[in-house]
Simulated scan of single mutants.
Amino acid sequence: MRTEALGPTADGSPLQLSVECRTSRNASRGRPHWIRIHADWSVETPHDLAAERVAAAFGGFTSCLELVDDVIPAVARSMGLLSRREPLPVQRRDGRSWHVKRIRGCCSAANFTTVQNAGDHLRSPAHLARQYGVAVRGLKAVLEAVNDASDAIRLDRVLEQHPGVGGLVLEGSGIRDLWAAGIHPSEIPAMAAHAVGVREALPVSYFVGLRYAGTDPDWLARTIVHRPDPMVASWLAWTSVQSSLACDDVGSWLAMGVGRQEIEALTAAMIGPGEAVDLATATHRATRSAARILAVWGTAGCRPSADQISLLDRHGIGDHVRPSAAAIDLLVKRARPYEPVPSRTELAVMLALTGSAHDVEVALSQGVRRAEDLA
């Protein structure tokens, strides 16, 4: 994105508009006259502004002075947001809502269901007027004039300079949705290029995630090559992995054909692909099947060994156990009096074999400390 300041018009010429000049704060109408806003946002008026500032110091009022000193600078500072050169100042909360900094007297809610709704609010004249402490009436009038004169803040005019980007976005309304989300069409090709190997159009959620979720685009690029699919790319754009080690593992899991939910469970539990390979080799399973088993156990906070899975296999339940984290938590508490207390995973395997926390507790009272000894 270009970073030079945007002027009020497309060609750099002055923007001339008619305003009503009020000499009382309580007046609803005033005498109309022209003003010119130049490319650097300096303003030319028929008034002697220096004299009016002196008058204002002694209690006088003219709406033109407020327009020049406050309203037009507010519009100039808003151009980055309005032109989508600046990302929206939003945060994702709890994976559901979009949070904006609440402006007193404006935002009845600081959370929005979509980033587009948040963007519409942040760019609205009412919000910008409150944000910069200016009159909404004057701000709206200047914004409307700039909207007509500038090529930078109207999507139809922007798209004339960036033909073909619509083919990179899956949804029919995708370009418009991204514009509402604060993403400029000129950025779309570079963002799409991070989805290395993906030949189809990418969903809006991919671009929004890449912009606002904080995902490393270089990591996404080297990971998506293992499964170049638009939906996987979108998932990766929103993926938050807690460690660099687990981050590097995601590509290997994808190459093995492991599903997205299972990968999330495996990375959260810090279980690496090597463990799935070892389990598959020891138990004569497909690697993907071994990964699925480890993901199920990892979700419950357990990390079974190949020997423990083999024990469950001998009882015909190795592929069917769905350990409950809550049940295991309760069993861990009930096992505390029986020293030495088996590991969480050992207790979970014992529970899977007996099917009853009571039976495990009885076994512990009899000195059993390993699932193997239950047999």
Rank of each mutant, 00 (worst) to 15 (best):
T267W: 05
R92H: 06
W219S: 07
K140V: 07
I103M: 15
T354P: 15
T287P: 10
A195D: 14
E200T: 12
G355Y: 07
D229S: 07
G172Q: 09
V204H: 02
D359K: 14
G80K: 03
R157V: 05
V204A: 01
W253N: 01
V208L: 15
R303C: 11
S173K: 13
A190C: 03
W219Y: 06
G301A: 00
T299K: 15
T345M: 12
I37P: 02
T45C: 06
G105R: 09
A306T: 07
A74T: 02
R369L: 14
Q91C: 14
E372G: 08
A74W: 01
L245Q: 11
D278I: 02
Y132A: 09
D120K: 11
T345Q: 10
R344I: 11
V225L: 12
W235A: 14
G298R: 03
E52F: 09
L311V: 01
W238M: 06
S324M: 14
G119Q: 10
W41C: 02
V232Q: 13
R157I: 07
I183H: 08
S18L: 14
V258P: 11
R25E: 12
A57P: 00
A291M: 09
L266W: 00
V136G: 13
S240E: 15
S240A: 15
C106S: 14
R36A: 15
A246C: 14
M191A: 07
D307I: 00
C247V: 00
V368E: 09
P217E: 01
V196W: 01
V362N: 09
I263C: 08
I37T: 01
V341D: 14
P73E: 09
V142S: 04
P304T: 01
A141L: 15
E171M: 10
M1N: 05
A5H: 09
V349T: 04
R211P: 04
L254M: 11
A295F: 05
R85L: 09
V90P: 03
Q242L: 12
A149D: 05
